[in-house]
Design a binder for these strands. Structure first.
Length: 255
DNA sequence: ATGGTCGGGAACCGA
């Protein structure tokens, strides 16, 4: 089975490209981020017509995450547990095809320092708690999404130009490592140890044509999922189309 | 060179 994560940057603006990509790539499970849509205005019927079940955690104007699967999704959890006052839609859990799957949209955190960076770090601390608890289930599990963290300088086209960016700060990177050091496998780096594997290119300044990208979309595999890891990669084709998202899909294949 | 480009939703905010 192939599991994808894709930050679509507006599910309604991206609907033609998303539908064409689903029909062509035929993913089994998809984690979407930045749907920028309330649940009621999600294009559910068009996606279901392609044979997918869909669960959303939407929000008006910003954020918003969703899960798609060829099989029904059960045990849905909307919102990252641990703070009932958090109103941002950045986390959804579900179970499908014998896999627990999370679609997450980690806060960007810019500018830093500042309240947005504080929110990012607190959100990451809360995520680590949830990720630790989920590991106790000892089941196949993938935490997939836009982490808004470049783990190393090899994940950034121009580290010096990004030195002050929240995506590169030591505080962000150490929390990213705390998460993976719980026992999750970085699927892309397990398959491609050195290639850049960028998943995001800014709309500005011709970043895509110059391959000035970032690796910020990640797949964290529990040990029971990692046992089944067969392959992983980045599907760059959608980024080259007209009216693309600024991200492109990242995937892994489990046996 | 302190810009550049998108999406959402109707003037700017977020990225």
């Amino acid at each position: 089975m192939k599991v994808y994560t894709f930050n679509v940057n507006g599910i309604n603006a991206r609907l033609p490209q998303l539908l064409a990509w689903l029909a062509n790539a035929r993913p089994d499970v998809v984690c979407l981020q930045e749907i920028k849509s309330q649940d009621a205005t999600c294009p559910r019927l068009e996606i279901e017509a392609l044979g997918y079940h869909m669960e959303t955690h939407g929000q008006k104007g910003f954020n918003g995450v969703a899960l798609l699967s060829r099989e029904p999704l059960t045990d849905i959890v909307r919102g990252l547990p641990g703070d009932d006052t958090d109103e941002q839609s950045r986390w959804i859990e579900g179970t499908t095809m014998g896999l627990k799957i999370v679609s997450l949209y980690l806060p960007n955190g810019n500018p830093q320092p500042g309240p947005k960076f504080d929110y990012k770090l607190a959100w990451m601390d809360r995520m680590i708690v949830r990720a630790r608890n989920l590991l106790l289930e000892e089941q196949p599990l993938i935490l997939a999404g836009d982490y808004n963290v470049c783990p190393t300088n090899n994940d950034v086209h121009n580290p010096s130009a990004m030195a002050e960016d929240a995506l590169m700060q030591p505080e962000s990177r150490s929390r990213w490592r705390q998460l993976f050091n719980l026992g999750y496998l970085d699927a892309i780096r397990a398959i491609e140890p050195t290639a850049h594997c960028y998943s995001y290119w800014d709309y500005q300044a011709g970043a895509w044509s110059k391959d000035h990208g970032l690796r910020i979309d990640h797949l964290a595999l529990s040990p029971q999922a990692a046992d089944r890891l067969k392959d992983a990669g980045v599907d760059r084709k959608p980024r080259a189309l007209e009216k693309p998202s600024d991200h492109t899909p990242v995937w892994c294949e489990l046996t």
